[in-house]
Design a protein around this nucleic acid. Structure first.
Length: 569
RNA sequence: GCGCCUAUAGCUCAAUUGGAUAGAGCAACGGACUUCUAAUCCGUAGGUUGCAGGUUCGACUCCUGCUAGGCGUGCCA
């Protein structure tokens, strides 16, 4: 499709130049040729509103501009163009010759699992950091959303030639994990019979803390009471981090997400890099002392407030290791780094970007996307707050467990992934667990998977009848004459640009929507037209090529999403 | 107060980044299994795109001002 577009671009540009040369069009500059979507077959295969855009400059009605442009296109000399029409206010609709459709099928047959990929990002290394949940509790569905999106974005970037990796930043240092240690300590001592203890302010109330503390008692009894309180809490903190991190990893693996790199905040803090950052900021005059703390001149970077980098108690605020961590990412040689953050990190964006700027790194090197929140809602549609500290939340594992009861383990992962992936990153989504479970079997992912299974089934059925598909070179594709067949091929041809657009805009949801649309053309076709027809083997073979192409694209698309493409359902 | 996100069919969401008649899925109603899988298909119904202006050939999309919800906003991450 892309090569076709550039070819058509050239033809139209040529026509505009010719029109200008002939004195029929008074414009000073030929714009880049835009393309608009062709929603109905009447719009042809490719459409451009270029004449509409030229109206002002040329001081002419868009429709007559379109007429002039079309007049200068000699369709006889351009084999790919079958017919050109002018429609509506001045759209130029181009119908391509059928050859183009056949070439699309040949391309897919040749590329197979590589159809949809390109080498646009060749030589560029990208890191996507996502999830990065505190190791203070199980992953909730918000992390699940981030995991699905981040994982798919990495797939998409790799598909268009980038060398992209998944990275998880473990916040295993600082106040949050300290609270974790304290919370475990309270539960531990309670398990040993101490009363009148309470989870400290900002501590973790979740049941999983109690359970973990009880396993500590089971394995070691009251041994830890021999330690001094500080030491015991530190020990519990480290044990708790290891335990919870292990659970998080297991949940992610179950969800089909495998991180390439796990980075530790603690390791960053102990590497001496934060000190270097402070030193650098100091030298550049970005720091000053006030109220017993050290401040960074964020206002120099346009922010309305300065911010503390070293607290009164001498500890770094999280900005410092975070800045050091991003410096470290840069040193590791990534061309681009993408952070997927939750909406609660909104205030973090401009600061982090400013720190990166203060470190002298390129402006566009760090990209930050917010994956919006997932709200739990009850049957009445009322929001329920989720909070790790209060212990009230829906875990990713719970979600998959519940879904698995209705649709089985593999499909549970598919359903959950699809559910998160089909939404734009910016959409705030309300999640009703009851509804999600009762409607699990109605998840649109099945519509797509079923289309794939049907394709497989045709080949299955074919081989039972002794019909095996021929290589595309030996098949006369001219037999694909149905309108729906052409429509299907046009859709298949869109796939590579969907992949590219999705990757470049970091919006994974286009892929699920595309696959759903493709399936939405396939199913009616399947219902109305028989593929296997022993009475007409020429047509049968042509249709098998088409079915194979549909199968390939569905499979490739689902693979990008980390969703299974079953051969039977 | 300020900053960011969101508001589209009864519900959940799209709309190729300014293009043609705003589309899907659920839910509702009516139909189709002796056929390569009915997890499917065909049909009906559903809209002042939160409100008010503006920009232009053209606005769900961009600008301004409102309204509502969410998130953030100098020592949690």
């Amino acid at each position: 499709m892309d090569t076709i577009k550039t070819e058509v671009c050239n033809i139209i540009e040529g026509a505009i130049h010719a029109a200008v040369a002939a004195g029929e069009l008074a414009i000073s500059e030929v714009p880049t040729i835009p393309f608009s979507p062709t929603k109905t077959p009447e719009h042809g295969d490719i459409a451009t509103p270029v004449a509409l855009g030229l109206a002002k400059q040329a001081r002419m009605a868009p429709r007559s501009i379109a007429e002039i442009i079309v007049k200068h296109i000699d369709s006889d000399t351009h084999a790919i163009i079958h017919q050109i029409d002018i429609a509506g206010p001045g759209f130029i609709n181009i119908q391509l010759s059928d050859n183009w459709l056949y070439e699309t099928l040949q391309t897919i047959a040749a590329a197979q699992k590589d159809y949809g990929t390109c080498d646009k990002g060749a030589g560029k290394r990208v890191q996507i950091e996502f999830v990065s949940a505190n190791p203070t509790g199980p992953l909730n569905i918000v992390s699940g959303r981030a995991a699905a999106v981040g994982d798919t974005l990495v797939n998409l970037l790799n598909a268009i030639g980038y060398e992209a990796i998944r990275e998880f930043y473990v916040n295993d240092a600082g106040g949050q994990v300290q609270r974790l240690g304290e919370s475990i300590d309270v539960r531990y001592r309670q398990a040993l019979g101490e009363e009148a203890l309470e989870i400290p302010e900002g501590g973790y109330q979740g049941e999983y803390i109690r359970e973990f503390a009880e396993t500590l008692v089971e394995t070691a009894g009251d041994k830890y009471l021999e330690l001094k309180t500080d030491e015991r809490i530190a020990r519990f903190r480290d044990k708790g981090i290891a335990h919870i991190l292990g659970q998080q990893k297991a949940s992610l693996e179950r969800f089909g997400v495998n991180f390439d790199v796990w980075s530790s905040e603690k390791a960053i803090r102990e590497s001496g890099k934060p000190e270097k950052i402070i030193q650098l900021f100091q030298e550049q005059g970005y720091l000053y002392e006030a109220e017993g703390a050290t401040w960074f001149r964020m206002t120099d970077f346009g922010d309305d407030k300065d911010c503390v980098v070293i607290r009164q108690d001498g500890e770094y605020t999280y900005f410092v290791p975070d800045a050091a961590y991003h410096r470290d990412k840069f040193d590791r040689g990534f061309t681009t780094v993408i952070d997927l953050l939750g909406p609660d990190h909104q205030g973090h964006i401009s600061r982090l970007k400013n720190f990166v700027k203060a470190l002298g790194l390129p402006d566009d090197w760090l990209e930050i996307s917010i994956i919006q929140q997932v709200n739990l809602v009850d049957a009445a549609g009322k929001r329920e707050d989720m909070s790790k500290r209060s212990g009230h939340f829906l875990t990713l594992d719970n979600l998959i467990d519940e879904l698995a009861e209705t649709v089985g383990e593999q499909f549970a992962v598919d359903v959950a992934r699809y559910f998160f992936l089909m939404r734009a990153n910016s959409s705030h989504l309300d999640f009703n667990i009851e509804l999600a479970i009762t409607h699990a079997s109605e998840n649109p992912v099945f519509y797509i998977q079923y289309a794939h299974a049907r394709c497989c089934s045709i080949f299955e059925q074919g081989s039972e009848q002794g019909i095996t598909s021929k290589p595309v070179e030996e098949v006369s594709l001219k037999h694909l004459t149905e309108l729906m067949e052409h429509e299907l091929i046009r859709k298949l041809a869109e796939f590579p640009s969907i992949v590219r657009l999705s990757a470049e805009t970091r919006e994974a949801h286009r892929v699920p929507h595309y696959l759903h649309e493709l399936s939405g053309i396939f199913h009616p076709y399947y219902n109305q037209h028989r593929v296997l027809d022993p009475a007409d083997m020429e047509k049968t073979h042509a249709r098998l090529i088409l079915i194979q192409s549909v199968q390939t694209v569905l499979k490739n698309g689902l693979t990008l999403l980390g969703i299974s493409a079953p051969a039977a359902m």
